[in-house]
């Protein structure tokens, strides 16, 4: 692949669709197979594809390592926040039905969606960080 034209062009076309597909899997966790972890893995795969096609330098300009360090903990924070909100509203940790929303079904739907987003962010960030570290280990 000394001239990467074809792989690069195809990656350019595919990456946005892969990212949207990952978010679709995230949002349809209740209706089909999927959920936060799978969505995070697919989203991470799109970034891995970017690194493979365009190289690490260009990827580092686009996706900052610091942002991923931040996101790793931000995902856990979202997860914990949803859990604690349930406790503040009078239930147990992650007992969604106690959230102050009109119906119990809506409450548990939004609660699960919230923690899935947290899981998604953490999984994406951790996977990308692992990949960056493994790909760069020869540089030290």
């Amino acid at each position: 692949m000394n001239e990467h034209v074809i792989v690069q062009t195809i990656s350019k076309i595919l990456i946005p669709f892969i990212q949207l597909y990952a978010l679709y899997v995230l949002a349809h966790g209740e209706l089909g197979p999927g959920g936060g972890f799978q969505a995070g893995a697919i989203f991470g795969a799109s970034i891995v594809l970017y690194v493979l096609a365009f190289g690490m330098k260009s990827a580092k300009l686009r996706f900052k390592s610091k942002v991923f360090d931040f996101l790793t903990s931000a995902g856990v924070f979202i997860f914990a926040t949803v859990g604690v909100l349930c406790m503040i509203a009078g239930g147990a940790f992650l007992q969604y039905s106690s959230l102050p929303l009109p119906t119990k079904k809506l409450a548990s739907g939004i609660g699960i969606y919230g923690i899935e987003i947290g899981v998604f962010i953490t999984v994406t960030a951790v996977l990308v960080t692992i990949f960056f570290e493994t790909a760069e280990q020869d540089d030290d």
Partner: peptide, 18 residues
């Protein structure tokens, strides 16, 4: 709602690629 938010997110991340 999530469709609109996520489409905006992807457009923000990758609009120069496609």
């Amino acid at each position: 709602v999530s469709a609109v938010i996520f489409s905006l997110l992807v457009a923000y991340l990758s609009h120069d690629l496609l």
